[in-house]
């Protein structure tokens, strides 16, 4: 626990030691605004909710979360600091979790900084605050899922570009399992149970059910176990690399 916290503090602080964090936050907020107000036709809908924003959030995350996660391990390996980290008296799990939670906290901070949207709809109308709060919780969970995948992939390579590209592709798969054209591709020939299983792995399916305002234990369990699985795989990959 102590080790995880030390790693967390260093990692989280390091985001703000360079302009990277500020640039990232700026880009994230600008894109969030663009998606919500332009593509999401926020004004034309004349409804006081944040659906346009949360509908686009998975697609925004698809590119921005791998940009956070790509450096997690690839950079350590490239610069050689991984040797320093792995020879400090901490366990592999502490290192993996410390870095992951720092990235997750940063991603959640970015999401939280979209609060002016919430203020705007509250000012313009009378939104269902429970739904919005649930959507934010869903957004944080989904961000954690994307990050866990990205962190795991970042451990495979020391090239951040490769880590980014592979992460985007894998995350895309996890989104697309919930899009009907993709499911249609399978439903024509695969048994229903396969289609349902695939759909149940989709971030969209789980995220959308949360954004309806229902925080179901199953959705939380899905993201929680997905994060746990990829953290475990992450530690396994790093362990394996020590033995090669």
């Amino acid at each position: 626990m102590k080790g995880t916290l030390s790693i967390f503090k260093r990692e989280f602080g390091s985001y703000f030691a360079t302009p990277v964090a500020y640039v990232f936050i700026l880009v994230f907020l600008m894109l969030a605004g663009f998606f919500t107000f332009q593509l999401g036709s926020f004004w034309d809908r004349s409804e006081a909710d944040l659906r346009p924003f949360f509908n686009f959030l998975p697609w925004l995350y698809l590119f921005l979360i791998p940009a956070i996660s790509m450096r997690l391990w690839a950079e350590e390996r490239k610069s050689g600091t991984i040797e320093l980290l792995m020879t400090l008296p901490i366990t592999m799990n502490q290192a993996v979790l410390g870095k992951f939670f720092a990235a997750w906290a940063f991603a959640s901070l970015c999401l939280a900084l979209t609060f002016p949207l919430w203020i705007t709809v509250s000012y313009l109308g009378d939104p269902d605050h429970g739904v919005i709060l649930a959507s934010y919780v869903g957004g944080i969970l989904m961000g954690g899922g994307f990050l866990a995948i990205g962190s795991c992939i970042s451990a495979i390579t020391k090239n951040q570009v490769i880590a980014f590209v592979i992460s985007v592709v894998v995350c895309l798969m996890f989104i697309l399992f919930g899009v009907s054209p993709v499911l249609g591709m399978f439903s024509s020939w695969a048994p229903e149970v396969v289609v349902d299983t695939l759909a149940s792995f989709s971030f969209l399916t789980h995220f959308e059910s949360i954004t309806k305002g229902v925080v179901d234990a199953r959705d939380i369990l899905f993201f929680g176990s997905l994060i746990a699985f990829f953290m475990f795989a992450n530690a396994l990959i790093l362990d394996h690399k020590k033995a090669v």
Partner: peptide
Amino acid sequence: GYLPEGAPAYPEM
């Protein structure tokens, strides 16, 4: 106490 080859350290710190 270990000094790895090339003395790696976190560059932004």
